[in-house]
Amino acid sequence: MRKTFQSLILAASVVTLPPSVSQAQPTSHSVEQTAVKNVVLVHGAFADGSGWRKVYEDLTTRGYRVTIVQNPLTSFDDDVAATRRALDRQDGPAVLVGHSWGGTVITEAGVHPKVRGLVYVSALSPDAGETTAQQYDGYTTPPEFVIETSGDGFGFIKPDNFAAGFAADATKADADFLKASQVPINMASFGVKLGHAAWRTKPSWAVVATEDKAFDQRMLQDMAKRIGAKVTNVPASHAVYFTQSAVVATVIDEAAQQSGAASR
């Protein structure tokens, strides 16, 4: 029997008591014009950092120093610790970027003093005192996105649904690779309350994939609105960071320029 994503994360939380724009084009500016030259990229659930490759290449070509966090996905605290560890190693201010579950991670870790701005890429953005699971209340997850949970509480995207639910606009070869390399997440992570909400004190940008089948579209738009993010809508699947890397990199570039100027 197929279980909805909401029911799975609810079960996990009980068990664990403890303005639309067209596709942006790369700009010709040099990163030397902005005080923020560091970018830290945080992947989401069911993936690893390799999906950021094209965003990494685009940003390094523009002159940014890019760090990719490898979330263990073993717990909320472990992922936040991995991100803080990466931020500690930056040689100056940084823009912190999260995809999907990575949005929850950067919301907590983004209070780090080196973070100047936040970029949410089809990402979750809970408030302090909220869980990730609560973000789904009142919304319906599209039927294409199906999670299978193993006996130890880790979730995978059902293989037969992976392309449709995660990467519908990727080539078959790319979708197959992403499916084969997916990293399971401890579903209990979705039931942990956040201690901080970095978006309350730091400027935010949001890239919303309008063909995302991992989230209710209303949910994505409502989350971005609540945090006061500058929104870029792009026709893409949940794997927007992978399939529309130029758009994502351009939004990150904009965030670095604007948050850098604001900090002077």
Score class of each variant (00 low, 15 high):
Thr104Ala: 11
Asp48Cys: 04
Ser50Gln: 13
Asp78Gln: 08
Leu73Cys: 00
Ala128Leu: 01
Tyr56Gly: 06
Gln90Pro: 01
Leu96Arg: 04
Asp48Thr: 11
Ala133Ile: 01
Leu118Asp: 12
Gly63Phe: 06
Arg85Glu: 09
Gly110Asn: 05
Arg84Lys: 14
Pro93His: 12
Val21Trp: 04
Thr104Tyr: 09
Ser125Gln: 10
Glu108Ala: 04
Val55His: 03
Val119Leu: 09
Asn38Leu: 13
Arg85Ser: 13
Leu17Asp: 14
Arg65Tyr: 07
Gly103Ala: 04
Thr27Gln: 12
Val69Ser: 05
Thr83Leu: 08
Ser75Ala: 06
His29Leu: 14
Trp101Ser: 01
Thr107His: 07
Gly103Glu: 02
Gln33Val: 08
Gly63Met: 10
Gln90Arg: 12
Val31Met: 15
Val115Met: 07
Gly51Ser: 09
Gly110Tyr: 11
Leu73Met: 01
Ala47Ser: 12
Leu96Asn: 02
Arg62Ala: 13
Gly103Val: 03
Ser125Asn: 13
Val55Ile: 09
Thr131Cys: 03
Glu130Tyr: 03
Leu96Thr: 04
Ala45Arg: 00
Asn38Asp: 14
Trp101Thr: 03
Asp91Tyr: 07
Asp127Lys: 12
Pro93Gly: 03
Pro113Ile: 09
Val95Asn: 10
Gln134Asn: 05
Ser50Lys: 13
Asn38Pro: 05
Ala45His: 08
Lys114Cys: 05
Gly51Ala: 05
Val55Asp: 03
Trp52Ser: 08
Trp101Phe: 11
Glu32Met: 11
Val115Asp: 07
Thr60Met: 05
Thr60Phe: 07
Asp79Glu: 04
Lys37Ser: 15
Ala128Cys: 00
Tyr120Leu: 02
Glu130Leu: 09
Thr74Val: 00
Phe76Met: 10
Thr27Gly: 09
Leu17Gly: 15
Thr131Gly: 06
Leu41Ser: 08
Val36Glu: 11
Arg65Ile: 06
Ala128Asn: 02
Asp88Gly: 01
Ala81Met: 06
Leu59Arg: 12
Ser75Pro: 03
Trp52Arg: 09
Tyr64Met: 08
Tyr56Ser: 10
Val80Gly: 03
His29Gln: 14
Ser125Leu: 00
Arg53Glu: 14
Val97Leu: 12
Glu57Arg: 15
Asn71Gly: 01
Lys114Phe: 07
Pro19Glu: 12
Gly110Lys: 07
Lys54Ser: 09
Asp79Leu: 01
Trp101Tyr: 15
Asp79Trp: 03
Val42Leu: 11
Val121Trp: 03
Pro126Lys: 07
Gln23Pro: 11
Val36Arg: 10
Pro26Lys: 12
Thr104Cys: 07
Val115Glu: 05
